[in-house]
């Protein structure tokens, strides 16, 4: 599967996150402070909670259920730190944001 257009840069401003479904994958697009757009699995690795329902402070995505936090640049768990969000490759072409879902599998909790 190749890169597919998901949205435009205007849909995810700096400091914002938004959820999309691409090829059946639930994806969270985040635009961290500084403007880099990243794509991660859309649900928390802990329980089946959509991360877009949580908070994003420009640096970390915080799940609403148990305040699990993830680095918006790497997807790495901050607390707990033994888990992570699966990341999808992102390509920005002009104003358009593309994501490639090939081979990416959501990760589940540390236990």
């Amino acid at each position: 599967m190749a890169f597919q257009k998901v949205c435009t840069l205007d849909d995810v401003w700096e400091g914002e996150m938004e959820a999309f479904t691409v090829d059946g994958h639930e994806i969270l697009l985040v635009c961290a402070d500084g403007g880099a757009v990243k794509a991660f699995q859309g649900v928390c690795p802990h329980q089946d909670i959509p991360l877009v329902e949580g908070k994003f402070d420009g640096e970390k995505v915080i799940c609403r259920a148990h305040s699990w936090q993830f680095d918006a640049c790497t997807g790495k768990g901050i607390n707990p730190d033994d888990c992570a969000l699966a990341e999808y490759p992102v390509k920005v072409d002009g104003e358009d944001i593309y994501v490639d879902t090939a081979g990416v599998v959501p990760l589940f909790a540390h236990s």
Binding site: A65, H66, W68, Q69, I78, N79, P80
Partner: peptide, 20 residues
């Protein structure tokens, strides 16, 4: 309390016990 412990104080999750 959850935000105090998990975000502000970064208490490891396996030391935080509660049912929501």
């Amino acid at each position: 309390i959850q935000e105090l412990l998990m975000i502000e104080k970064r208490v490891p999750y396996n030391q935080v016990h509660y049912d929501r």
